[in-house]
Amino acid sequence: MKTAHELRPGNVIMLDGSPWVVQKTETTRSGRNAAIVKMKLKNLLQDSSTETTFKGEDKMEDIILDRLDCTYSYFADPMYVFMDAEYNQYDVEADNLGDAAAYIVDGMEEQCQVTFYEGKAISVELPTTVVREVTYTEPSARGDTSGKVMKPATIAGGATLSVADFVKTGDLIEIDTRTHEFKKRA
């Protein structure tokens, strides 16, 4: 069992007798520190997606499907192609990557986990932390070094996120792929 707060894109959960793959998660905070997790889920039996909301502490039955360690090879619209250690290739639909697609870049070396359902590659789970280059961010406006003042930045692959004010264009940064939050300069 995992809590809703622990789920991330690529996980598969059982709801009402159907397997659902988590495509996207967005965690916010309600009153009294309670987390609320908004998710985009895809029903693997009906091939349909839905948006849903959970309390962060809601317990989910995550199901263990076949998984393989793979690396990203290339993008053949609309499929992302991954390859295992024996050079077998697996196509994953772009939609099924959800938020993870933001961190897929050519030449990336991180090991990803490709998940299979009835022999078909259905999702990809990234490592908890990835390191990406900041391709653009405004220079520090306030000279803040505490890490509390944030500013927007674009990373390799085109995604944007908030980073500490001291981060510069060209820096490598660590990102938490579950929360999409900047962790630190790599």
Partner: peptide, 12 residues
């Protein structure tokens, strides 16, 4: 974006 969204339960 969250108001009114369903929260799917394991029980259905």
């Amino acid at each position: 974006g969250c108001h009114g969204l369903p929260s799917l339960q394991r029980s259905g």
